[in-house]
Nucleic acid binder design. Structure first.
Length: 680
DNA sequence: AGATCATGCAACGCA
DNA sequence: GCGTTGCATGATCTC
C-alpha cells in the first residue's frame, strides 16, 4: 500500500512538473491551450511557444515568447525537467528542434475555426464536437495550419538536482507522451471509432455500463485512453494530448515505478490523462488561470482569478507568495483575500500548481485583451461562489473521497495496439506535425483579429455551458440527526446539521469566486475531479495547534465560503486531506462573541498532529466544486532559522490576520498573500 | 468606534 | 486531577 502510494506520488511528481512547464504556454484557456513542448536534450529544457504571440490574445507579438529557466523557479521535484547538468545558460539549442504539433493546432483551431462551421464555439470544444465531420475538419485544418518552429532554449537552473530516478546522461530522448502511450493520430484517422454518433455512444455506453460493474475494471491501456477521450471529448482535444511531452526515460521510469510493463504504462497513462483532464477541463470551462503568473504581467490591470490545486501529494504546497507579483496597480480591493497560486517544493522555490479553482469571466464582461501572466488578483466582476454542501456520506462518481493515494479509474478494453502503433508511428506523426506547423503560420496571423473577437463569445458560451453542466451524482446520505438536507446546484451533498439552505439573500461578500459547474462524465469513469476552489486559509496560531483541537477560522471567509450556520452547534464537515486523501471529520461551528461570531473548526487535533503543524504553519481549505466535498491541506512553513526563512525574513511581513504583506511593505492588503515556503 | 481574532479562564464532565 | 467546552476579554486592525 505504501509502496503503491509512493509510486503514484512519483508519477504525480512527473505530471506536476509537466504541468508547470506546460503551463508556460497556457495563456488563454478559452481556447485550446498553447502548445508547449517540454523537451530535453543534453539536459537542456526546451519550451516551444507559438511564434505568433497574438494567439494568446496579445497584440503585436511584442510579448516575449521565450521563457528562460531563470524565470522559473527551480523544479526540484520534477525529474524530467530538472537538469542539474545544464549549468550553462548559454547551452546551444539542440540541433533538431523538438516536434511541435500542439500549439499551432491549439491556437489555430481557435483561429482557423473561423472559417469553419464551428466558428462560434470555443476551439477547445469545437475540436471535439461529437460529429465526426467537425473532428475531421479540424484535423484537416490542423494539418494545413502547421509550421515548424525552432523553440527557444529554456535554460535550466543550476541548482536543480536530479533525483536518482532519472539519469540526465541518458534521459535525452524526449518523446510525445501520447505517442508513446498511444498515437493519437490513429484516432483522427477514424474519428467515428472514437467518437461515434450520439445514438451509438449512448448505446455503447449502456453496454459498457452493465458489465463494468460486474466485471470490474480492465486495465487495458487502449480502453483507458478511449474511455477517457469519450469522457472529455468536448473539452480536450487530441492536440492537447499531443502537446504533452515527456522524455521517454521519464515515461519508462514512471511506468516502472507504477508497476512496470503494461500495468505500469496503463497506470501512467491514467495519471497523465488525469492530469490533462484536471488541468485542461478546468481551464476550458473557467476563467483563465496562468500558472506562469509569476513571470511578468504585461497588463497589471488585468484581473485574473486564481486558486490552484496541486496534484502532487508528495510535497506540501502553499498558496502563492506575493513577491512574485510586484504588481502595485493590480489592486482590485479584496483585502484579506490571498492569492491562491499554489506552490510546493523547496522553501524559497515557488511554482504554480495545477489550478483547479480558477474561474471564468463573467459573460457580460469583455475578456481582457491581455491575460495577466501572473495575476492572482481576483476579478471583482466574477460570480461569487457558493459553498459546497458536502459534509458526510458523499459517494458516487465524484471521485475518491474515501480512497487514498492514486486516483481511481474504471476502464476497460484492450489498448496495447495503440501503444505499439503509437511507438511505430511516432516518426511519421512527427513529420505530419511539422507540416502542420508550417502551414499553420500562414493562416495564423491573418486570423488573429478574429481570435480576439471570439474571445468574448467563447467565454460566454463557456459559462452558459457550464451553467448546465452540473452532473455530480453524489449520493445523499441522510443523516437522521440532520434537520435539513440540501442539494447544491453544482454539487449534491448531504449536510448533517443546522445548515441553512443556499439563500438568495445571503450576502455576496466575495465576488472573486463564482459558481462552477462540472462537466459530464460517463458512468464508470471514476476520475477524481480536482476542481478545487480555494475557500480560505488560516495561519495557525498557538491556540490553533494546541491541545484544544480547534482552529479559529477567519470570520469573513468562513461566512462567505463555508456553509451558513444557523445554530451555534454548527455542522459536521468532512475534510479530505489533499495530501493524504484521508478524511477528517471535523466540526464547523461558531461561538457567539459579543454581537458577532467566532467560527471554529473543531476536531482538528488529529489533523494538526498528523501533519505536524505548528504555529506559523497554515491550513488551506478548498472545496471540490464537482463533488461538493471539502478538502484541506496543512502546509508547513520552514521553521525560523532555516535558510529560506532567513533569506526572506526581510521581504515578508505578516499582518495579524495571517496573510502576508507585500515585500515592499506598502501595507496594501490586496497584495497580501500566504506564505509560500513549504517544507520539503 | 466597531470588528476581528487570539487566548485566558471558568464551568463542566469524566476517570 | 485532567481534559474539554464555551465564554469573556483584550490586543489589534479596519473603516
Amino acid at each position: 500500500m505504501e509502496e503503491d502510494m509512493q509510486m503514484h506520488e512519483a508519477a504525480e511528481r512527473h505530471l506536476h512538473g509537466l504541468e508547470r512547464v506546460k503551463s508556460v504556454g497556457d495563456q488563454d484557456p478559452n481556447f485550446i491551450p498553447l502548445k508547449v513542448e517540454v523537451e530535453e536534450e543534453d539536459t537542456d529544457l526546451w519550451l516551444d511557444r507559438d511564434p505568433a504571440g497574438d494567439l494568446l490574445g496579445v497584440d503585436g507579438g511584442d510579448e516575449p515568447s521565450i521563457f528562460y529557466a531563470d524565470d522559473f523557479p527551480p523544479l526540484p521535484d520534477f525529474p524530467c525537467i530538472s537538469s542539474s547538468s545544464s549549468s550553462t545558460p548559454s547551452n546551444p539549442p539542440p540541433a533538431e528542434p523538438p516536434v511541435n504539433d500542439g500549439a499551432c493546432r491549439s491556437s489555430s483551431s481557435s483561429s482557423s475555426s473561423s472559417s469553419s462551421s464551428t466558428s462560434s464555439s470555443p476551439a477547445s470544444w469545437t475540436m471535439f464536437k461529437s460529429d465526426a465531420e467537425g473532428i475531421v475538419e479540424e484535423k484537416r485544418n490542423n494539418q494545413m495550419d502547421a509550421t515548424v518552429q525552432k523553440p527557444p532554449l529554456l535554460r535550466s537552473p543550476d541548482s536543480m538536482e536530479i533525483p536518482p530516478l532519472f539519469d540526465p546522461q541518458t534521459d535525452v530522448d524526449c518523446i510525445n507522451v501520447m505517442q508513446e502511450l498511444g498515437d493519437m493520430d490513429l484516432i483522427w484517422e477514424e474519428p467515428n471509432s472514437i467518437f461515434p454518433p450520439e445514438e451509438e455512444q449512448q448505446e455503447q455506453q449502456k453496454k459498457e455500463e452493465g458489465p463494468q460493474d460486474d466485471e470490474g475494471p480492465s486495465e487495458d491501456l487502449g480502453t483507458v485512453f478511449l474511455e477517457w477521450l469519450k469522457s472529455n471529448k468536448e473539452s480536450i482535444s487530441a492536440e492537447d494530448l499531443r502537446s504533452i511531452k515527456l522524455k521517454r526515460s521519464t515515461i519508462e521510469c514512471a511506468a516502472k515505478r507504477l508497476g512496470g510493463g503494461k500495468e505500469g504504462m496503463t497506470q501512467l497513462l491514467k495519471l497523465i490523462l488525469l492530469w490533462v483532464q484536471t488541468h485542461h477541463l478546468h481551464k476550458s470551462r473557467m476563467q483563465p488561470y496562468h500558472p506562469q503568473q509569476f513571470f511578468q504581467n504585461p497588463n497589471p490591470t488585468t484581473h485574473v482569478p486564481d486558486s490552484h490545486l496541486c496534484l502532487s501529494s508528495s510535497t506540501p504546497w502553499i498558496p502563492h507568495e506575493q513577491p512574485f507579483y510586484a504588481n502595485p496597480t493590480a489592486n482590485v480591493g479584496f483585502p484579506s483575500l490571498p492569492p491562491m497560486l499554489g506552490y510546493m517544493g523547496d522553501p524559497g522555490f515557488s511554482y504554480p500548481m495545477i489550478d483547479s479553482t480558477a474561474t471564468w469571466h463573467h459573460p457580460s464582461l469583455p475578456t481582457p485583451p491581455h491575460f495577466s501572466l501572473y495575476n492572482s488578483y481576483r476579478d471583482p466582476h466574477l460570480i461569487p461562489a457558493q459553498p459546497p454542501l458536502q459534509v458526510f456520506g458523499s459517494s458516487g462518481n465524484c471521485g475518491n473521497q474515501y480512497s487514498s493515494g492514486a486516483p481511481q479509474m474504471v476502464v476497460q478494453g484492450n489498448g496495447e495496439r495503440l501503444v505499439k502503433m503509437g511507438l511505430s508511428a511516432t516518426k511519421e506523426a512527427r513529420k505530419n506535425r511539422m507540416a502542420r506547423q508550417r502551414r499553420f503560420l500562414s493562416h495564423h496571423r491573418s486570423q488573429n483579429h478574429f481570435h480576439h473577437q471570439r474571445q468574448h463569445s467563447s467565454t460566454t458560451e463557456q459559462l452558459a455551458r457550464l451553467a448546465t453542466d452540473a452532473n455530480c451524482t453524489t449520493s445523499s446520505h441522510d443523516n437522521p440527526g440532520a434537520n435539513r438536507v440540501f442539494r447544491h446546484s453544482t454539487a449534491a451533498a448531504t449536510i448533517t446539521a443546522d445548515m441553512a439552505p443556499p439563500s438568495s439573500d445571503r450576502p455576496i461578500l466575495q465576488p472573486h469566486q463564482q459558481r462552477q459547474s462540472t462537466s459530464e462524465r460517463p458512468q464508470g469513469w471514476k476520475l477524481p475531479d480536482m476542481n478545487l476552489r480555494f475557500l480560505l486559509q488560516k495561519v495557525l496560531k498557538q491556540s490553533d495547534v494546541g491541545n484544544l483541537g480547534r482552529i479559529v477560522l477567519p470570520k469573513k471567509e468562513a461566512e462567505t465560503h463555508l456553509p451558513e450556520l444557523v445554530a451555534r452547534d454548527g455542522i459536521s464537515i468532512a475534510m479530505e486531506d489533499i495530501g493524504t486523501s484521508r478524511i477528517w471529520n471535523m466540526h464547523y461551528r461558531f461561538w457567539p462573541n459579543n454581537k458577532s461570531r467566532m467560527y471554529l473548526l473543531e476536531n482538528t487535533g488529529d489533523f494538526v498532529r498528523s501533519n505536524g503543524l505548528q504555529e506559523g504553519d497554515f491550513i488551506v481549505i478548498y472545496s471540490d466544486v464537482k463533488c461538493g466535498k471539502y478538502m484541506i491541506r496543512g502546509v508547513k512553513v520552514p521553521q525560523p532559522g532555516s535558510k529560506m526563512v532567513s533569506k526572506r525574513a526581510g521581504k515578508l511581513q505578516r499582518n495579524p490576520h495571517g496573510t502576508l504583506l507585500s515585500p515592499a511593505g506598502d501595507g496594501d492588503p490586496t497584495l497580501s498573500s500566504p506564505i509560500k515556503e513549504a517544507v520539503t
